[in-house]
Amino acid sequence: EPLWIRPDAPSRCTWQLGRPASESPHHHTAPAKSPKILPDILKKIGDTPMVRINKIGKKFGLKCELLAKCEFFNAGGSVKDRISLRMIEDAERDGTLKPGDTIIEPTSGNTGIGLALAAAVRGYRCIIVMPEKMSSEKVDVLRALGAEIVRTPTNARFDSPESHVGVAWRLKNEIPNSHILDQYRNASNPLAHYDTTADEILQQCDGKLDMLVASVGTGGTITGIARKLKEKCPGCRIIGVDPEGSILAEPEELNQTEQTTYEVEGIGYDFIPTVLDRTVVDKWFKSNDEEAFTFARMLIAQEGLLCGGSAGSTVAVAVKAAQELQEGQRCVVILPDSVRNYMTKFLSDRWMLQKGFLKEEDLTEKKPWWWHLRVQELGLSAPLTVLPTITCGHTIEILREKGFDQAPVVDEAGVILGMVTLGNMLSSLLAGKVQPSDQVGKVIYKQFKQIRLTDTLGRLSHILEMDHFALVVHEQIQYHSTGKSSQRQMVFGVVTAIDLLNFVAAQERDQK
């Protein structure tokens, strides 16, 4: 057995438009009618409502009807409940999964919650491996369901041993009777949507819809739904939504950006999952974080739909894509998950301010006199920076000697690579993860907040409520011999709460 199987392995699926269902090699399930009293909570997966979006479509000038398939009504709160249950049931049916076995899954959280929910009911041990950027709410729900959680670096490539995929496979090879159901490759993922989600949409719309818009992560949702719609409703256009920084969209030119990270969760990847059939997507749109969270908040405030950030991405694209539809036509959007997962993220004004998705003037509360002053007023001194090749031991000596707790790590040209902190280095040394002679590049981390000289002290204040420091950066445009230009970030300084307090105190003292 291989040590790991690539999540982007070539698909062996034989589905073709027009091929009889009787030739399918898979076990198919028909939607079942729910009894009045459910035998367990797993029976509350599927049969989610279709809700008309009344205000947002009109606000953006849509002539067509805009409908939302509300997947956050599933038992675990997301569309991923469907595939989690289906993968477990299919693994039980073919004898792969037996009582007492362990389920391991690399996930952005929602599939993990679905699997942990099913594992709690069915009696399996469950280990979820997820990147650090995923919300604390997801972690809390997983723990409450009895799952064990392993976190991995957000910026690790999918084929790196440190990625959530790599760590999951390492655990599988170490733990007896453990299984990775593997949402990236498992046919049960798109089949769950082909058999149930798509049929529900067709039934709820009486077979009449002209466009379907869905955000894409593993691709199982859009693949399964689109294949069924292509068979039953061939005139329906399928629109895929991919965040900026991901590479799922086609044509490839759409993916060209210097951005590699994004805040919206559960969609987009740096590889093409095996289950994603991009041939059934008629057109791709890219979405960005700001519009995703703005539209998610709009869905909550104006439509009462308590959905997550990827739902915002989907609707932001839908109001663009559906401009081509006329009166009497219908566009369906998939709202994948609930706001429950993001209470401390985009639902929080403070978080939105820190990330730059909300401006101070958007909030009406009274601010102190210094709130709208610029960061450049602080008069920061030149920063202490270190090269990635310097040793951890030497870096600790320098920081202690100069009285700093942290320093930016830059390359020879001064471009920011990340940050090192005294606390992080000492804990890594004590844990045996690094040696004093190791290069400081081994303990770089990139989960820090950046701020510009033109940003306000109010925004800085919000950042420092949650973080010990902020890195002050400025952009530099560099022209190359080819005539092309590129933008790079340079370090201007490091600012802490002490710097802000000293500035405010000094100004008030001078005024007296």
Rank of each mutant, 00 (worst) to 15 (best):
Q476N: 13
I272W: 04
G441Y: 13
E324V: 15
L353V: 15
K283G: 05
E475K: 13
R350N: 10
I267E: 06
Y262D: 00
A311E: 03
V495G: 15
G414I: 12
E253G: 14
I396S: 13
I477A: 14
P251M: 06
L335P: 00
L501W: 07
T482Y: 13
K286W: 00
Q478G: 15
R330H: 14
Q354C: 03
P243L: 02
S287V: 09
L399T: 06
E365H: 14
E263F: 08
P436W: 11
P408W: 12
K449Y: 14
G309K: 03
T279E: 11
K345D: 00
K286I: 01
T496E: 07
K359V: 12
Q489N: 13
N502L: 11
C307G: 08
P273W: 06
G266R: 01
L429R: 12
E365C: 14
V491D: 01
V275H: 00
S428Y: 13
D349F: 02
H462C: 11
V409A: 11
E508I: 10
V409C: 12
F357T: 04
M419T: 15
G423C: 04
G393V: 14
E252M: 13
R374Q: 05
E397D: 13
L464Q: 13
S437L: 14
H468Y: 08
F285N: 07
D242T: 01
A249E: 06
W351A: 01
D242S: 03
L358D: 10
W351E: 01
T385P: 10
Q376V: 06
D282H: 02
V495Y: 09
I334Q: 02
E244I: 08
V504M: 13
A321R: 08
G312M: 03
Q478Y: 12
I416E: 03
F469N: 10
A321C: 14
P368T: 04
L373P: 11
V339P: 06
S428E: 12
Y445M: 05
A497K: 11
L305H: 02
G393M: 14
T279P: 15
I300T: 07
H468R: 14
L387K: 12
V409E: 07
V280S: 13
L373Y: 15
L347G: 00
F357I: 07
K449V: 05
T454L: 07
Y342P: 00
P273M: 06
A318L: 00
E291H: 03
